[in-house]
Structures are given as structure tokens and as C-alpha cells.
Simulated assay, not measured.
Amino acid sequence: MATLARMLSRASGFEIDVETLRPIVIFCGAGLLFALMLLSYGVDLSPGFF
């Protein structure tokens, strides 16, 4: 997480703290999970699908 914060700080030119980045990453991850769940609604994901 610290490496990601340093990389974003260097790329953007703004100082980004790890404690600021953590809730943003969690919120984006939850949104991505929710979007994937919506996309798979009605799709048969049984073992026979794979």
C-alpha cells in the first residue's frame, strides 16, 4: 500500500498519505465487486459453465 501511495504521489505531484489511500481503495474495490455481481446477474455460473 505504501508503494502504491508513493507511486501515485510521484505521478500526480501531490502528496498522498497511506491513510488517505486506504478508504479510497476499499471503496473502489467494493464498487468493482458490486458491478461484477450486477453483470453476472442471471448468468449461470455453475461448475458446468467453466
Rank of each mutant, 00 (worst) to 15 (best):
D17P: 13
S40W: 03
L38K: 01
R10Y: 01
A5T: 01
P47D: 02
A2H: 09
A5S: 14
L32S: 08
V18H: 06
T3D: 14
T3A: 15
T3C: 07
C28F: 14
F50G: 11
M7N: 11
R6M: 11
F14R: 11
C28L: 15
I26A: 15
E15Y: 14
S12A: 02
L4P: 00
A11R: 06
Y41R: 14
A11G: 02
L33R: 14
F49Q: 05
L45V: 12
V25G: 00
L39E: 12
V43T: 12
F49C: 11
L21R: 00
L4S: 01
D44V: 08
G13A: 12
M1E: 09
L45K: 03
M7W: 07
D17K: 15
T20W: 10
L39R: 09
F50K: 09
S40C: 11
F49Y: 11
L21T: 01
M37K: 06
R10A: 07
P23D: 08
A30P: 03
A35L: 13
A30R: 15
V43K: 04
A30Y: 02
G31E: 07
T20C: 07
I26Q: 14
A5I: 01
I26D: 12
F50C: 09
L4T: 02
D17W: 14
A2C: 05
F50V: 15
A35E: 12
I16L: 08
M1V: 03
G31W: 04
A2D: 09
S9H: 00
L21Q: 02
A30Q: 10
G13V: 15
A2V: 07
I24Q: 03
G13D: 11
L32I: 13
L33I: 13
F14T: 08
L33N: 04
Y41T: 13
V43Q: 08
R10F: 00
L8I: 14
F34L: 13
L45R: 01
V25F: 01
G29A: 13
L32G: 06
F49D: 03
M1Y: 01
L39W: 06
A30G: 09
R6I: 04
F14M: 05
F27Y: 07
T20Q: 12
A11K: 12
V43Y: 06
P23Q: 05
M37F: 14
C28P: 05
P23V: 04
R6K: 15
I26V: 15
M1S: 02
A30V: 11
G29C: 12
I24A: 08
V18I: 03
R6W: 00
I26M: 11
R22E: 07
L33D: 01
E19H: 14
F14Y: 10
L45C: 11
L36Y: 03
P47G: 08
L45Y: 02
L8Q: 02
V18F: 02
L38C: 10
A35H: 07
V43H: 06
G31L: 02
V25Q: 03
L36H: 03
